[in-house]
Protein backbone atom coordinates (compact mmCIF):
# COMPACT_ATOMS: atom_id res chain seq x y z
CA UNK A 1 0.00 0.00 0.00
CA UNK A 2 1.25 3.45 -0.84
CA UNK A 3 2.32 5.59 2.08
CA UNK A 4 -0.27 8.16 3.12
CA UNK A 5 0.74 11.68 2.06
CA UNK A 6 -0.36 15.29 2.27
CA UNK A 7 -0.49 17.30 -0.96
CA UNK A 8 -0.10 21.04 -0.72
CA UNK A 9 -0.29 23.58 -3.52
CA UNK A 10 1.31 26.91 -2.80
CA UNK A 11 0.99 30.16 -4.69
CA UNK A 12 4.46 31.65 -4.74
CA UNK A 13 5.83 35.04 -5.66
CA UNK A 14 9.53 35.93 -5.47
CA UNK A 15 9.20 39.62 -4.80
CA UNK A 16 6.72 42.49 -4.62
CA UNK A 17 6.60 43.12 -8.34
CA UNK A 18 7.21 39.70 -9.84
CA UNK A 19 4.42 37.47 -11.08
CA UNK A 20 3.07 34.58 -9.09
CA UNK A 21 3.28 30.86 -9.84
CA UNK A 22 2.07 27.64 -8.21
CA UNK A 23 4.12 24.78 -6.83
CA UNK A 24 2.94 21.46 -5.47
CA UNK A 25 4.57 19.60 -2.60
CA UNK A 26 3.85 16.12 -1.33
CA UNK A 27 4.96 15.19 2.18
CA UNK A 28 4.46 12.12 4.38
CA UNK A 29 1.29 12.19 6.47
CA UNK A 30 1.63 12.82 10.21
CA UNK A 31 -1.37 12.79 12.54
CA UNK A 32 -2.47 16.14 14.02
CA UNK A 33 -0.61 18.13 11.38
CA UNK A 34 -1.52 21.71 10.71
CA UNK A 35 -0.61 23.93 7.77
CA UNK A 36 2.45 25.36 9.53
CA UNK A 37 3.81 22.00 10.63
CA UNK A 38 3.57 20.98 6.95
CA UNK A 39 5.38 24.14 5.81
CA UNK A 40 8.09 23.30 8.35
CA UNK A 41 8.37 19.78 6.98
CA UNK A 42 8.70 21.20 3.47
CA UNK A 43 11.38 23.61 4.69
CA UNK A 44 13.49 20.69 5.91
CA UNK A 45 13.37 19.18 2.45
CA UNK A 46 12.24 21.80 -0.07
CA UNK A 47 11.59 19.60 -3.08
CA UNK A 48 8.46 19.86 -5.22
CA UNK A 49 6.27 16.91 -6.14
CA UNK A 50 8.10 16.80 -9.47
CA UNK A 51 11.38 16.39 -7.62
CA UNK A 52 12.71 19.88 -8.18
CA UNK A 53 14.82 21.47 -5.45
CA UNK A 54 13.39 24.95 -4.71
CA UNK A 55 13.95 27.67 -2.09
CA UNK A 56 11.91 27.06 1.08
CA UNK A 57 8.51 28.75 1.13
CA UNK A 58 8.32 32.10 2.93
CA UNK A 59 5.49 32.67 5.37
CA UNK A 60 4.91 34.59 8.55
CA UNK A 61 4.31 32.88 11.86
CA UNK A 62 5.28 33.13 15.46
CA UNK A 63 3.18 31.77 18.33
CA UNK A 64 1.61 28.77 16.53
CA UNK A 65 -1.34 28.88 18.90
CA UNK A 66 -3.52 31.56 17.35
CA UNK A 67 -2.77 34.48 19.62
CA UNK A 68 -0.14 36.46 17.67
CA UNK A 69 -2.02 37.05 14.41
CA UNK A 70 1.04 36.54 12.21
CA UNK A 71 0.19 33.48 10.13
CA UNK A 72 -2.92 34.60 8.26
CA UNK A 73 -3.30 33.17 4.75
CA UNK A 74 -6.00 32.02 2.38
CA UNK A 75 -6.44 28.28 2.78
CA UNK A 76 -8.70 26.44 0.34
CA UNK A 77 -10.28 29.78 -0.50
CA UNK A 78 -10.92 30.84 3.08
CA UNK A 79 -8.88 33.40 5.03
CA UNK A 80 -7.73 32.10 8.44
CA UNK A 81 -4.80 31.47 10.74
CA UNK A 82 -2.68 28.70 9.28
CA UNK A 83 -1.42 27.36 12.64
CA UNK A 84 -4.90 26.26 13.64
CA UNK A 85 -5.80 24.91 10.18
CA UNK A 86 -5.66 21.19 10.90
CA UNK A 87 -4.84 19.04 7.88
CA UNK A 88 -7.34 16.36 8.89
CA UNK A 89 -10.15 18.89 8.47
CA UNK A 90 -9.04 20.20 5.05
CA UNK A 91 -9.80 18.88 1.58
CA UNK A 92 -6.70 17.91 -0.38
CA UNK A 93 -4.83 19.19 -2.22
CA UNK A 94 -4.58 21.97 0.35
CA UNK A 95 -4.29 25.26 -1.53
CA UNK A 96 -2.35 28.08 0.17
CA UNK A 97 -2.43 31.66 -1.10
CA UNK A 98 -1.29 34.96 0.39
CA UNK A 99 -3.96 37.43 1.40
CA UNK A 100 -5.05 39.50 -1.60
CA UNK A 101 -5.90 42.76 0.17
CA UNK A 102 -2.35 43.50 1.24
CA UNK A 103 0.77 43.81 -0.93
CA UNK A 104 2.68 40.54 -1.20
CA UNK A 105 6.20 40.68 0.24
CA UNK A 106 7.24 37.21 -0.83
CA UNK A 107 5.31 33.95 -1.25
CA UNK A 108 2.72 33.82 1.55
CA UNK A 109 4.04 36.83 3.47
CA UNK A 110 2.21 40.13 2.99
CA UNK A 111 2.72 43.69 4.22
CA UNK A 112 0.09 44.59 6.79
CA UNK A 113 1.58 47.90 7.94
CA UNK A 114 -1.61 49.65 6.77
CA UNK A 115 -3.47 47.99 9.67
CA UNK A 116 -1.03 49.31 12.25
CA UNK A 117 -1.16 52.80 10.71
CA UNK A 118 -4.95 52.75 11.00
CA UNK A 119 -4.66 52.05 14.73
CA UNK A 120 -2.82 55.37 14.98
CA UNK A 121 -5.70 57.16 13.25
CA UNK A 122 -8.26 56.05 15.84
CA UNK A 123 -5.89 56.68 18.76
CA UNK A 124 -6.28 53.12 19.98
CA UNK A 125 -4.55 53.77 23.30
CA UNK A 126 -5.10 55.18 26.78
CA UNK A 127 -4.10 58.79 27.27
CA UNK A 128 -2.41 58.37 30.67
CA UNK A 129 -0.52 61.04 32.61
CA UNK A 130 2.60 58.95 33.10
CA UNK A 131 4.06 55.58 33.90
CA UNK A 132 4.71 56.30 37.57
CA UNK A 133 2.63 55.19 40.53
CA UNK A 134 -0.73 56.98 40.40
CA UNK A 135 -2.63 54.39 42.38
CA UNK A 136 -5.31 51.97 41.16
CA UNK A 137 -7.38 52.46 38.02
CA UNK A 138 -11.14 52.98 37.88
CA UNK A 139 -13.55 50.26 38.99
CA UNK A 140 -15.21 48.38 36.14
CA UNK A 141 -18.43 46.31 36.28
CA UNK A 142 -17.97 42.64 35.38
CA UNK A 143 -20.37 42.90 32.43
CA UNK A 144 -18.36 45.71 30.80
CA UNK A 145 -15.18 43.75 31.32
CA UNK A 146 -16.73 40.82 29.48
CA UNK A 147 -17.47 42.93 26.40
CA UNK A 148 -14.16 44.83 26.51
CA UNK A 149 -12.14 41.63 26.91
CA UNK A 150 -13.67 40.15 23.79
CA UNK A 151 -12.84 43.29 21.78
CA UNK A 152 -9.31 43.42 23.14
CA UNK A 153 -8.52 39.97 21.75
CA UNK A 154 -8.10 41.47 18.25
CA UNK A 155 -4.71 40.29 16.91
CA UNK A 156 -4.52 42.65 13.91
CA UNK A 157 -4.38 39.52 11.78
CA UNK A 158 -6.25 40.99 8.79
CA UNK A 159 -8.89 38.28 8.31
CA UNK A 160 -11.71 40.83 8.57
CA UNK A 161 -10.08 43.02 5.91
CA UNK A 162 -9.44 40.13 3.54
CA UNK A 163 -13.06 39.03 3.79
CA UNK A 164 -14.48 42.54 3.39
CA UNK A 165 -15.74 43.44 -0.11
CA UNK A 166 -15.23 47.15 0.62
CA UNK A 167 -11.58 46.88 1.68
CA UNK A 168 -9.15 46.75 -1.23
CA UNK A 169 -5.51 47.26 -2.13
CA UNK A 170 -6.36 50.51 -3.85
CA UNK A 171 -8.73 52.30 -1.48
CA UNK A 172 -8.38 53.75 2.01
CA UNK A 173 -11.22 52.07 3.91
CA UNK A 174 -10.17 51.68 7.52
CA UNK A 175 -11.79 48.25 7.94
CA UNK A 176 -13.55 46.53 10.82
CA UNK A 177 -10.68 45.93 13.26
CA UNK A 178 -9.76 49.58 14.01
CA UNK A 179 -13.44 50.52 14.23
CA UNK A 180 -13.84 47.85 16.89
CA UNK A 181 -10.72 49.12 18.69
CA UNK A 182 -12.20 52.63 18.76
CA UNK A 183 -15.25 51.10 20.46
CA UNK A 184 -13.03 49.34 23.00
CA UNK A 185 -11.31 52.54 24.10
CA UNK A 186 -14.46 54.64 23.96
CA UNK A 187 -16.12 52.31 26.47
CA UNK A 188 -13.23 52.52 28.94
CA UNK A 189 -14.09 54.79 31.89
CA UNK A 190 -10.98 56.90 31.23
CA UNK A 191 -10.50 56.12 27.54
CA UNK A 192 -13.79 57.84 26.75
CA UNK A 193 -12.32 61.22 27.74
CA UNK A 194 -10.99 61.49 24.17
CA UNK A 195 -13.87 59.61 22.52
CA UNK A 196 -14.52 62.45 20.08
CA UNK A 197 -10.98 62.29 18.76
CA UNK A 198 -11.53 58.63 17.87
CA UNK A 199 -14.79 59.39 16.08
CA UNK A 200 -13.31 62.10 13.86
CA UNK A 201 -11.33 59.79 11.54
CA UNK A 202 -14.33 57.47 11.30
CA UNK A 203 -16.37 60.34 9.81
CA UNK A 204 -13.83 61.09 7.13
CA UNK A 205 -13.27 59.48 3.72
CA UNK A 206 -12.38 55.82 4.25
CA UNK A 207 -14.21 55.89 7.58
CA UNK A 208 -17.18 53.96 8.87
CA UNK A 209 -19.43 55.30 6.06
CA UNK A 210 -17.60 53.04 3.62
CA UNK A 211 -18.83 49.88 5.37
CA UNK A 212 -21.17 48.07 2.99
CA UNK A 213 -22.74 45.94 5.72
CA UNK A 214 -21.75 42.67 4.02
CA UNK A 215 -21.02 41.22 7.49
CA UNK A 216 -18.24 38.99 6.16
CA UNK A 217 -15.86 40.41 8.79
CA UNK A 218 -17.59 38.82 11.74
CA UNK A 219 -17.71 35.48 9.93
CA UNK A 220 -14.00 35.58 9.17
CA UNK A 221 -12.74 36.71 12.60
CA UNK A 222 -10.77 33.84 14.18
CA UNK A 223 -11.45 35.26 17.65
CA UNK A 224 -15.23 35.59 17.09
CA UNK A 225 -15.10 39.29 17.94
CA UNK A 226 -18.57 40.83 17.45
CA UNK A 227 -17.31 43.16 14.72
CA UNK A 228 -20.72 43.99 13.25
CA UNK A 229 -21.93 44.98 16.73
CA UNK A 230 -18.89 47.22 17.02
CA UNK A 231 -19.60 48.80 13.65
CA UNK A 232 -23.26 49.40 14.62
CA UNK A 233 -22.23 50.90 17.95
CA UNK A 234 -19.63 53.17 16.36
CA UNK A 235 -22.06 54.23 13.63
CA UNK A 236 -24.38 55.36 16.41
CA UNK A 237 -21.58 57.27 18.16
CA UNK A 238 -20.52 58.82 14.86
CA UNK A 239 -24.11 59.95 14.08
CA UNK A 240 -24.48 61.57 17.49
CA UNK A 241 -21.11 63.25 17.03
CA UNK A 242 -22.10 64.58 13.62
CA UNK A 243 -25.17 66.22 15.10
CA UNK A 244 -23.04 67.66 17.88
CA UNK A 245 -20.58 69.02 15.33
CA UNK A 246 -23.36 70.73 13.35
CA UNK A 247 -24.84 72.12 16.54
CA UNK A 248 -21.50 73.41 17.77
CA UNK A 249 -20.83 75.13 14.44
CA UNK A 250 -24.22 76.92 14.53
CA UNK A 251 -23.79 78.13 18.05
Amino acid sequence: MAEKTITIQIKRQDSRDSSSYWQTFEIPYKPNSNVISCLMDIRRNPVTKEGKQVPPVIWECNCLEEVCGACTMVINGRVRQSCSALIDTLAQPVRLQPMSKFPVVRDLAVDRSRMFENLKKVKAWMQVDGYHDLGPGAKVPETNQGIAYKLSECMTCGCCMEACPQFSLNNNFIGAAPISQARLFNMNPVGKFIAEQRLQPLMEAGGIGDCGNAQNCVEACPKSIPLTESIAEMSKQVSVQMFKNIFQKRS
Partner: peptide, 22 residues
Protein backbone atom coordinates in the same frame (compact mmCIF):
# COMPACT_ATOMS: atom_id res chain seq x y z
CA UNK B 1 0.90 46.00 43.01
CA UNK B 2 2.12 49.14 41.23
CA UNK B 3 2.77 47.27 37.99
CA UNK B 4 -0.71 45.72 38.06
CA UNK B 5 -2.38 49.06 38.77
CA UNK B 6 -0.39 50.69 35.98
CA UNK B 7 -1.45 48.00 33.52
CA UNK B 8 -5.04 48.50 34.63
CA UNK B 9 -4.71 52.25 33.95
CA UNK B 10 -3.29 51.41 30.53
CA UNK B 11 -6.56 49.69 29.68
CA UNK B 12 -5.88 45.99 30.24
CA UNK B 13 -9.25 44.24 30.47
CA UNK B 14 -8.51 42.37 33.70
CA UNK B 15 -11.26 40.16 35.12
CA UNK B 16 -13.26 41.87 37.86
CA UNK B 17 -14.95 41.07 41.15
CA UNK B 18 -18.66 41.86 41.64
CA UNK B 19 -17.60 45.17 43.25
CA UNK B 20 -15.63 46.09 40.14
CA UNK B 21 -12.21 45.49 41.68
CA UNK B 22 -9.47 43.51 39.99
Amino acid sequence: PFVIHLMDRLGVTFNRTPEGNL
